[in-house]
């Protein structure tokens, strides 16, 4: 039976990875919630005014920027921030 010793650094690194995952994941869920209303409204407007499609897509993409923030935080956590180095 092999018993592996888990170091404090290993636990912290694991928690860091979980945090990085949550940052992107929760940002994605938030953007999705924001987009559901915008998406439905844009489809409604485009059904009447096809010319609104470009503007509508732009408005729909606004909540997506939240994911970029989340992703940036994840990348910093995983690669740029090295507290245990």
């Amino acid at each position: 039976m092999v018993v592996e010793t888990i170091t404090d650094g290993g636990i912290l690194y694991g928690l860091l990875a979980v945090g990085a995952g949550l940052a992107t994941g929760l940002a994605g869920i938030g953007a999705g919630v924001g987009e559901q209303g915008i998406g439905a409204a844009v489809v409604g407007v485009v059904a009447e005014e096809p010319g609104f499609l470009g503007k509508g897509l732009f408005l729909m993409l606004l909540p997506e920027t939240l994911i970029i923030f989340g992703l940036a935080v994840s990348l910093i956590l995983m690669f740029a921030w090295t507290p245990f180095a």
Partner: peptide
Amino acid sequence: VKYAYITGRVRA
């Protein structure tokens, strides 16, 4: 959100 589509449409 149920109202998003119909309100978007009537505003257009």
